[in-house]
């Protein structure tokens, strides 16, 4: 399976993502933000970083990069798209995912490994048993997920909440999210489950050389699904 990892001016996690995917035995190439042909790829990942210096709002300018019109078409045709950290912010700005990512509640840039609980969701990317607690690093200043009450109700009812920040034993407390995120939400997907956005960085805990292996199963679910349908 061949992944395209989009590089915007200011992206800085694209090499980590490509390394993680290759570690998992997948093909992965960089896609420049000015490219408009995604036909060579089975799945697209928008990596973390500070696209366009985070000017105006995180992801607000990247959303209008030439490649993004194609990413929207790719996603709307049901093909898999994931956004990690800044990539999640870009997907939210592009309205491929609902809600927005605000400044962290404590005003601090947060860089640490946190426990996450994998929820029972329709997300096509995940390969964990629901309820699994994993440890994945977060590294952001604007990860405070918010949406209106109606959207939150829909996310919960449709199984669109993919991962939540939790306590080490998997329980959820009002303050489990280090950034103040609504309902401890760390990652969500669209209704079809093909578009996935999350603030934590699973690519950093995929190859054990970088300190963990909990992240691989954030990518292998989509590989298995596409192989099943002969993709």
């Amino acid at each position: 399976m061949r992944f395209g990892v989009v590089v915007f001016p200011g992206s800085n996690c694209e090499q980590d993502v490509v390394h993680a995917l290759r570690y998992l035995g997948q093909e992965a190439d960089y896609v420049w933000h000015g490219d408009t042909d995604l036909s060579a790829y089975d799945a697209i990942i928008l990596p973390g970083g500070f696209s366009y210096g985070d000017y105006i709002r995180c992801g607000a300018v990247a959303r209008f990069s030439p490649v993004m019109a194609e990413v929207v078409r790719f996603a709307e045709s049901g093909r898999p798209v994931a956004g990690i950290c800044n990539g999640f912010q870009i997907l939210a700005e592009a309205h491929l995912l609902p809600g927005a990512l605000l400044r962290n509640e404590g005003l601090k840039f947060i860089c640490k490994t946190v426990p996450l609980r994998v929820e029972e969701s329709v997300c096509q990317w995940m390969d964990h048993e629901p309820g699994t607690v994993v440890r994945v690093p977060v590294n952001h200043n604007e990860g405070n997920f918010i949406c209106d009450a109606e959207t939150l109700g829909r996310l919960n009812a449709n199984g669109q909440v993919v991962v939540r920040y939790c306590e080490p034993d998997g329980s959820l407390l009002p303050g489990s999210a280090p950034n103040g995120a609504l309902d401890n939400i760390a990652g969500i997907c669209n209704e079809r489950g093909n578009v996935f956005g999350l603030m934590p960085h699973p690519e950093r805990v995929t190859d054990p050389a970088t300190g963990g292996t909990d992240g691989g199963a954030f990518f292998t679910g989509i590989v298995k699904r596409l192989e099943e349908v002969g993709g």
Partner: peptide, 8 residues
């Protein structure tokens, strides 16, 4: 379209 995010 760009300068504000109507969601927030």
């Amino acid at each position: 379209r760009l300068l504000a995010n109507p969601v927030i």
